[in-house]
Design a protein around this nucleic acid. Structure first.
Length: 117
DNA sequence: AGGGTGATTGTTGGC
DNA sequence: GCCAACAATCACCCT
């Protein structure tokens, strides 16, 4: 039942251990990237507060503290962050839309082929 | 129609 | 430049 909450999929740590010897994994050549998550906006706003209250807090502290606060916040508190996330999502959406469109446009022409190998 | 997978996002701080 | 916990996400593609 691989569908936990944390530490499960996104574990690039173990993946990075694999390290491609030469075959560079390329899902999408110009991957339009995804969108940010509420956490990103939340952290941007809280990071200063966290450090303000924990100037000694390094990464782990801030990370855990941040997440703890995040869950402490109410939906209304996260709402503004979620809204931003939603905004970014729409942005990423258009990104892919255009990416898909431009991709289909150059499809066949074989021009925009970024081969860095 | 449903499943789950992976990829991505941002913070800090040291080497 | 990269990596690490912390969290969300959710678009992506396949069977």
């Amino acid at each position: 039942m691989p569908k936990e909450t944390t530490k499960s999929t996104k574990r690039k740590a173990a993946d990075k251990a694999e390290k491609a010897p030469k075959a560079k994994a390329k899902k999408d050549p110009k991957a339009p990237k995804r969108a940010l998550s509420a956490y990103m906006f939340f952290s941007q706003d809280w990071r200063e507060r966290i450090k303000a209250e924990n100037p000694d807090a390094g990464f782990g502290e801030i990370g855990k503290l941040l997440g703890a606060k995040w869950k402490e916040l109410d939906e209304s508190e996260k709402k503004p962050y979620i809204e931003q996330a939603a905004r970014d999502k729409a942005r990423a959406e258009k990104e892919k839309t255009d990416y898909d469109g431009q991709k289909a446009d150059s499809a066949g022409s074989g021009d925009g082929d970024d081969d860095d190998e």
